[in-house]
Design a protein around this nucleic acid. Structure first.
Lengths: 193, 193
DNA sequence: GTCTATAATTTGATAGAC
DNA sequence: GTCTATCAAATTATAGAC
């Protein structure tokens, strides 16, 4: 269960790719083991159960995500730039083969996930909403909004981006994602200072 | 395989509920059979394979969906009312226990679905985009938009609603869906004549 | 850390009786 | 139309050797 091991992190990488492609119920320990060049029993040495593996994948994904977008209190980056970073992370996720953002697919699968994984999913959406509300508050156009309005704005934008990945992948064209982002900017859902 | 049979349509009902709750990979023929009070072997009499069952569920769902929203050329209903119908169908889907719109979850699972089901998913999103673009065109605010712009608008709104269901369910509060719809109206993504 | 071997269960699906 | 019986394969997971 040592996440320091190179094999453990390799398994996390592979598991993340699997989840983002086919979901939690769409891959097995054997698929994972084959890709990693070991036996499925050996996967259990690193991660006792599939639930713990998926929870570890989710936690690492969330940590990296928030590390990548940065702190909203960071004064060395403009609100515009930080919003571009945020949107950019979703674009990177969808442009990676035919995959989605991890929490988009886990969110859709929510009620079939083990408890520990469900908690990670809910936590990510909650944290993401908080982060986004805090960023939106930095835009002058949002100066008149109270906390509840900011949360609503944040959830709407988050929802639009998650949905954009699904619609874009179904169409098979990354341009659809870009087109939707363009609409979100145009209508002010993605603010511009 | 006779979809006229009452048992076949009961199985479609149950399968639809399963897919909308736990996805295509989240339930088995035995789960379905138990709920229907028959044996799993008997399910195969009505639907030869899981692929054909899921495809039938998807086709029926799409047919009912477009029948419920009506024809965009129908002059007996205003564009406002028809948009409310459209949004309302998504709200009904999410307010049904902890379920999603069928194509939201199938869209997320896309790359793990059998070919026939994948085709149904792509078809629904394509048809839904066409329908929505045609409706949006009826609003005066969209009079200056060309076909490509209308498609982009339609895809953006469709994506936002699909994502709203995921985010709302993760939060566990239907009010989140309503709040997001409020934002979509406010920013003009959902037009108003 | 990885292996072999295996357990216990579930899966989608088929054959054939009633 | 539904059943019993069964299949082959896959699943998560464990025990114990190396």
């Amino acid at each position: 269960m040592s996440l320091e091991t190179s094999k453990a992190s390799e398994l996390l990488d592979l598991a993340e790719q699997y989840v983002r492609s086919v979901g939690y119920n769409g891959f097995s320990f054997r698929d994972l083991a084959d890709d990693a060049g070991i036996k499925s029993a050996s996967v259990h040495y690193h991660f006792a159960t599939k639930e713990r593996l998926a929870a570890a994948v989710a936690r690492r994904y969330a940590e990296r995500f928030f590390a990548a977008v940065g702190d909203t209190a960071d004064a060395t980056i403009t609100a515009n730039e930080q919003m571009d970073r945020f949107v950019g992370l979703f674009r990177i996720a969808i442009s990676d083969d035919k995959r989605l953002c991890l929490f988009c697919i886990l969110g859709a699968e929510l009620s079939t996930l083990p408890d520990e994984v469900q908690r990670e999913v809910r936590q990510f959406f909650a944290d993401c909403t908080t982060w986004l509300a805090s960023l939106i508050a930095r835009f002058s156009a949002a100066k008149s909004l109270n906390g509840k309005d900011l949360t609503a704005r944040a959830q709407a934008l988050l929802a639009s981006l998650e949905g954009a990945m699904i619609v874009s992948r179904a169409d098979g064209d990354l341009a659809v994602f870009d087109s939707i982002v363009g609409e979100l900017r145009h209508c002010g859902m993605i603010p511009r200072k």
